[in-house]
Design a protein around this nucleic acid. Structure first.
Lengths: 334, 334
DNA sequence: TTGAAAGCGATACCAA
DNA sequence: TTGGTATCGCTTTCAA
């Protein structure tokens, strides 16, 4: 910066101001900009952050980047936060709380301005870290009873119950659930729980549950799960899957066995992934606005940031809880 | 850090050393650690980077995070770089060179130790920035003639040609190509080019090309593209698609029209996405090890970093060019 | 093994 | 509108 300053014949402060877009005469601004281009100067963000006491980072944690659900959420966050000069520090927890803790700890070293993370399953240490961080935190994709700070999500339990009722309305009684084996995927566990509760409430007898595969559940898990299900409970009328991915795999397995979906067996998914509208038969599912979760989370963070800064016109209170809309989408498969 | 130091009854330097895992007596180490836990101290990475002149960031740019291809590559990079204490700064260019330039510029402010980016299509300014950065750079997914620095990829042109030959060997002559409309997706353009070259080389007459949709090409693009193709060239025998995603969409469109794949029309994809092995019929494709590209890129960067540091045992030269293996995978659809 | 002092490259604050 | 100075929190370097 000194080099730029002397080349432009001004002080470092003036260079700093030009870079920050603050008051400066047009002539000065031009000379400085010219010097910057000349030298190929790139300001050091670490120095800036240290000096100003504020970074330009927003920390974002998702369980998996390869699930389109979460990459959509990241896109939503990007769309909202980037225009405000925030850079996303993206971390992939791989559904492991210990890994999440490590990542949070590492990200906190960069003094992020705010933190968005997925779900409510954190280690005690992570929770303490988040609370002590002093920055706005939003947990996404669930509506935890005891959130760390803000929340943008929906009840996976209720959504799953609604799907069971939909299948029941279609006349099905022997309804099964295909989920993942992991205890760490809380959204998946909640959907299973919703299934169990509703099946019980409707008096449909013993739940038929097959749990197979690590999260993120992909289409490769659906086939084997469906095979196991048909082995154990061959008279199953309808299957709801923890996600559209496994539903697709399950439907493919049915086709291989010559079972017609939905005539021989109905199959429903969850999440309204692109595939469920494209494939044949199209998949009945629960639509969730993954991108919207990201947007809303980003907006909540910005509001909290504005409130913390005591900005004019900013409401003094945060948006503690944003409930995201979901809906059963009837299609061909169930 | 001062607080930690005085609580532990040592100097700041000792705290710093304990944090860095350097020489310190066991007793000291314990007292310092205790003080850290007590106070919930989190070291400031910006200050550390400023002081030491080196950050812990590795910059990674991909065209899209929602394509499993690229998220797999990011996973590969993570697997290799993270154990070396590097934190990934991930950016999504959305296939826009101007956006890439903005992101590179912003990331360079954080003084990344190395840079991995996708493809060879950069603005002139981006190229200059990369060259001036002075850190190892790797371009992935292509084998550009004039790389910025290192390269890990394969020839999309050759791979596409190989697929055309495969289809020709199956007896097809009237072969079409379904691709995206964007001129900015170089991998897609190269595959198209490979198709055109090989069709011409084989004397199969005028190329039949349908270009439709923005990158990343998803399964939703395949159906309309196939519809347009059949409209214009109803007697097409085989179709190769720019990716498995569009191939899947195209096959679904065929099913809707009562066309049997591959009997009525053969369809091939590219990339060996999970879906192509799961769906029905399974999709003939070109397998590319996306995760491996990430791994190899990470390894090349680490080697370059070691060489730059003049490390004992490190070869003095970088791995300029890593050619990634690809192969046509015959399946049911073609 | 430990400590003291200097400085990394910006920005905040106060003056001119 | 511009400049000088102190300072952010850490690591490097040198000395004990």
């Amino acid at each position: 910066m000194s080099d730029v300053a002397s080349l432009a014949g001004v002080s470092k402060m003036t260079v700093s101001r030009v870079l920050a877009g603050q008051s400066a005469s047009e002539a000065t601004r031009e000379r400085v900009q010219h010097a910057i281009d000349e030298l190929g100067y790139v300001a050091d963000a670490a120095a800036g952050a240290l000096s100003s006491g504020r970074s330009s980072f927003a920390a974002v944690l998702v369980p998996s980047l390869s699930s389109s659900n979460f990459s959509d959420t990241v896109s939503g966050l990007t769309a909202v936060l980037e225009p405000h000069g925030l850079e996303l520090l993206i971390g992939d927890t791989d559904y492991l709380p210990e890994r999440e803790e490590r990542i949070v700890r590492q990200m906190l070293r960069h003094q992020p301005r705010c933190i968005a993370l997925t779900g409510s399953q954190h280690t005690a240490a992570t929770r303490t870290l988040l609370e002590r961080s002093g920055v706005p935190v939003v947990e996404m994709w669930e509506l935890p009873a005891a959130p760390v700070d803000m929340t943008v999500g929906f009840s996976n339990v209720s959504a799953a119950r609604e799907m069971v009722r939909y299948l029941a309305d279609k006349g099905h009684r022997r309804i099964a659930f295909l989920g993942g084996a992991s205890e760490l995927d809380r959204r998946g566990i909640d959907r299973l729980k919703g299934y169990q509760l509703e099946v019980k409430a409707l008096g449909f007898g013993e739940p038929r549950v097959v749990r197979l595969g690590d999260s993120p559940i992909t289409m490769s898990h659906g086939g084997p799960a469906m095979a196991a299900l048909l082995e154990r409970w061959p008279d199953t009328q309808a299957v709801m899957c923890v996600s559209d991915m496994s539903a697709f795999g399950a439907i493919m397995e049915c086709q291989r066995r010559g079972l017609v979906v939905p005539d021989d067996i109905a199959v429903a998914g969850f999440g309204n992934f692109e595939i469920s509208a494209c494939c044949h038969p199209t998949i009945t599912t629960v639509s969730v606005d993954a991108y919207g979760i990201g947007r809303r989370a980003g907006e909540a963070l910005l509001r909290a940031l504005a409130a913390d800064a005591g900005e004019r016109g900013a409401h003094a209170h945060r948006t503690a809880r944003t409930r995201i809309h979901y809906a059963v989408v009837p299609r061909e498969s169930a």
